[in-house]
Write a protein that binds this DNA or RNA. Structure first.
Length: 496
RNA sequence: GCCCCCAUCGUCUAGCGGCCCAGGACGUGGCCCUCUCAAGGCCAAAACAGGGGUUCGAUUCCCCUUGGGGGCACCA
């Protein structure tokens, strides 16, 4: 049963019915990693057979999300491939053909029960404390009679004829053998009355036709896995290796993510949707690193991974089957780590869009100069705007009181605000080193503490209480602008 | 109600019978460094759900209980 093939063919098969969330992204990532690692192929397949649930733009969002994360597929939409089409909505006839095969082999049957009757049956079963299953009343209809009724235009579905006795054993890579009593299984519908195949049939047929060796999917599929196993057997096809991933729980660890929690999260500056993460200032590198480690580990201490590292180190055997609570402070941590690893130029390029979004004209070259200081202190990319927008704005404002130098008289403050301008003027070569040297010398001369003079200068040139290191700020601001801001502050003080 | 899965610090996890009076990371607290904010350094508190077995020896294997999660659609 275990697949001996060394290069894996895996598929990520989302349905375009909403936003892509962390759980799907992690499945896609694992698919990508194991395909790359084994020199196999990663197939993207769109499962859009339920026409009613389609959401406009969802497929585009999905593709953008994967691109942003750097997860590229070998076969699928946009790329094509030898086993296409890769959109299930374009494969309707294929599923019908195989469904018919199942009927002919006696593994499936036509069912003419109305939804009204089905509902009644279910309710009756529940009243009797039985699993709410189909009662199998159409099982006994002969193929001949069924075909006649179909010809007469009677609506029908196709059901899988699940054995009533015995057991079905599914082999999961992480959990081993899982045994299900057939009597607890249902005669699941595999083709709807509109002629579209349901997941169970469509995915099985596609996985076979696309030569998938390993199916990596969420553990919400575990309860229907015996059905899938049975369908594979009915076709006498070689089953892929099943890997059911754990689910993600909400940050508290109690229950899975609900809509309410998702809203609460976005109020806190977080999101479980991939499309939001970019705008929130997260790096795809960090997101990958973070989700990779939710349910997988490499050893007892390594935590920092690039995508390439992951490709090299990833293995299905180290997957953890237990559910994992989402921990956003860990995302922040990884974001900091990956920001630090960025070159100054790269960081400048990545934060630039956030300045644009805030209508601040921040030249890349300037951003690059402040990048070293920024690297050490921003958590998300957008933090950089708040921290150094004053460098690029024309006007800044002050609370007059904030300009007062601590522990000295107002007169002395005024005097220093005057003199320090001369010191700055006298700096001939505007470099980080000379700025620091001259200011420090002046500070000593006046017997001022750093917390006095430098705090004043910080407020004077920025209007902010928190900035990157002062000398870096002055350096990037430029001599002229520094002087004019010091003059502005001097005026405010003089008026007090 | 029925079926299935899971179970180590608050959280993510290492551990696949003795290396473990349980290791790492995030977060938390303290100290040092310091021009703000960070970063960095050092230190601390913090876990094997409970009960039975198996074994010379269980966090590791088995069973039960409890707890948590998932599923029971003409959705995936």
């Amino acid at each position: 049963m275990i697949n001996e093939q060394t290069s894996y063919r895996v598929r990520f098969a989302p349905s375009p019915t909403g936003h892509v969330h962390l759980g799907s992204a992690r499945t896609a990532l694992y698919d990508y990693l194991i395909a790359k690692k084994t020199g196999g192929q990663f197939i993207l397949r769109i499962e859009d057979t339920d026409r009613k649930r389609l959401v406009e733009g969802a497929e585009e969002e999905l593709i953008n999300g994967l691109h942003w994360l750097g997860i590229d597929w070998d076969e699928g939409p946009l790329k094509g491939g030898p086993y296409g089409p890769y959109r299930q909505s374009e494969r309707k006839e294929i599923y019908q053909k195989y469904a018919r095969q199942l009927v002919e082999k006696g593994w499936a049957y036509y069912c003419f029960c109305s939804t009204v009757r089905l509902k009644q049956v279910r309710e009756e079963m529940q009243k009797q404390k039985q699993p709410p299953h189909y009662d199998g009343s159409c099982r006994t209809i002969s193929l001949e009679e069924a075909e006649k009724r179909i010809e007469n235009g009677e609506p029908y579905v196709i059901r899988f004829k699940t054995p009533k006795e015995g057991k079905t054993v599914v082999n999961d890579l992480l959990r081993g053998e899982i045994t299900f009593e057939n009597k607890n299984l249902d005669d699941y519908i595999i083709v709807k009355s509109d002629g579209w195949a349901l997941y169970h049939l469509a995915a099985t047929v596609d996985d076979h036709l696309m030569k998938i060796t390993h199916v990596i999917r969420g553990s919400e599929w575990l309860p229907t896995s015996p059905l899938h196993h049975l369908i594979w057997q009915a076709f006498e096809w070689n089953e892929p290796t099943w890997v059911h991933l754990s689910v993600f729980l909400k940050p508290s660890g109690k229950g899975k993510m609900s809509k309410r929690e998702a809203v609460q999260l976005s109020n806190d500056g977080y999101s479980i949707f991939i499309k939001d993460l970019e705008d929130l200032g997260y790096l795809p590198e960090a997101v990958n690193n973070w989700i990779a480690l939710m349910g997988w580990s490499y050893d007892d201490h390594t935590e920092y991974f690039t995508l390439d590292d992951l490709v090299e180190k990833f293995s299905l055997e180290k997957l953890n089957p237990s559910p994992a609570a989402i921990n956003f402070s860990k995302l922040d941590h990884f974001n900091k780590m990956h920001i630090k690893k960025l070159s100054e130029r790269e960081l400048a390029e990545r934060i630039s869009p956030f300045f644009k979004k805030n209508n601040i004209d921040a030249p890349i070259d300037q951003l690059e100069k402040i990048a070293p200081a920024l690297k050490e202190r921003i958590i998300t990319l957008d933090d950089s705007v708040e921290m150094c927008e004053f460098l690029f704005k024309e006007d800044i404002s002050h609370e007059p009181d904030a300009l007062l130098i601590r522990d000295i008289s107002l007169e002395r403050s005024k005097e220093i605000s005057e003199k320090v301008i001369e010191v700055v003027r006298s700096i001939e070569t505007w470099t980080l080193a000379s700025i620091e040297e001259q200011i420090t010398a002046y500070m000593e001369k006046e017997a001022l503490e750093p917390r006095q003079l430098l705090s004043y200068l910080r407020e004077a040139i920025s209007g902010q209480r928190i900035t990157p290191p002062l000398f870096d700020c002055m350096y990037v601001l430029g001599k002229e602008k520094t002087i004019s801001r010091l003059e502005g502050s001097r005026e405010i003080l003089a008026a007090l």
